[in-house]
Design a protein around this nucleic acid. Structure first.
Lengths: 204, 204
DNA sequence: AAATATTTTAATCATTTGATTAATTATATT
DNA sequence: AATATAATTAATCAAATGATTAAAATATTT
């Protein structure tokens, strides 16, 4: 069909379409995205989208796996490192997310809402189940607080890190938060999140 | 146009359409919802939707305001009560949300993602700006922790309460959380959230 | 009961949308 | 250069979709 030859890395038509798809899907979500939006954004003929990726759905799957991987896959090595303490892991996760979410602030809301409507993306998401059941991180929480479901702390940590980016549109709409103010807020959180997380770990 | 008379409360055609719209919009979001879905769900003729509500957009606005109000309006009286302590307010908010989100678990993800794409819903959302700037709750945080932006704590509290419902689809997809397990988790959080929140307030 | 107003329905429109086709251009192979 | 392969384009399709219309059914008023 397509692409039997030609793979000049980054400026290829295929990659241009993918890049545009990333942008448009992330901004508007699957249902609100028109294949014509993607074609226009990438400056290609609409037919090429189907030539290279067969369908809107297939192209979306591709983008979606990438984004799920980016949102959850990045922290896997941190969580599975047997040589770092629980506290250190929390610091590393917070720092890692702060960096990544500053670059892709729309990522969490995109992944979380699309996952609700496409529960079939499990394949790409398989990593998370493993983390939740057998990561070093979860083991360390269990040792520290055998009295509480470790998932609770995992949700808390993920929540204080990710939630600001999820509620950002609301805060902006409420008129009480500029882009600059949000940046400052996130910056301040970098230092605070590990402290908050540790404080919650000690709660009885 | 429509509805010059007839308002038998609850079984009216108008209300049947609205109720179906609530259900379908909440489940699928604006873009993925077909007016025919709503018509079918409410058992009415498609034309009646436009007869009573003019357009899909208008009907959506109606549902959206309701949902924004439900998600943020409910806690306003709690946050503005001058007679309760900060700690008490946190307890009341947590309890209030636990109750409401158990009944409408899809609410947060719906409102937060739709608000990203319809930033015009500000009217219905005007209440939040006021809360963030002049509620008793924010004043009390300021007094307690003059060194930290009170918005940080507000986000934290909202986050630990709401985030589980946002990440629920992911947890379910990861295969490590049944509906029952989620219920238990939420139940356990009811008691823990006020403690976690208070612990974060004390962090230096 | 007749007249009027309101509600409901089936049929239909005009666009939009994902996808395909057939022809054209560009690139690689012999 | 001739030929084959791959990439690109314009045109078009069929289905889906939001909305409207004109007629029929139902309720309300006189």
């Amino acid at each position: 069909m397509a692409k039997l030859k030609n793979k000049p890395a980054d400026t290829s038509t295929e990659e241009k379409i993918k890049e545009a798809a990333r942008k448009v899907f992330l901004k508007k979500g699957y249902a609100a995205t028109r294949t014509r939006d993607i074609a226009e954004e990438s400056g290609i003929n609409l037919a090429l989208l189907n030539y290279y990726f067969r369908s809107k759905e297939k192209l979306f799957q591709l983008v979606m796996s990438e984004k799920v991987q980016k949102l959850f896959g990045t922290i896997t090595p941190i969580l599975n490192n047997a040589d770092t303490t629980l506290e250190k892991k929390i610091e590393l996760i917070a720092a890692s997310y702060a960096l990544m979410l500053t670059e892709y602030p729309e990522l969490p809301l995109f992944v979380l809402s699309e996952m609700k409507n496409h529960p079939d993306q499990m394949a790409a998401n398989a990593g998370l189940g493993k983390i939740l059941q057998q990561s070093v991180f979860i083991q360390q929480i269990k040792e520290r607080r055998p009295d509480i479901n470790p998932l609770q702390f995992f949700i808390n940590i993920l929540g204080i890190i990710i939630f600001p980016f999820i509620i950002k549109p609301v805060l902006k709409a409420s008129g009480s938060l500029s882009n600059q103010a949000f940046s400052n807020l996130v910056e301040e959180r970098k230092k605070m999140i590990p402290k908050w997380a540790k404080a919650m770990l000690k709660v009885t």
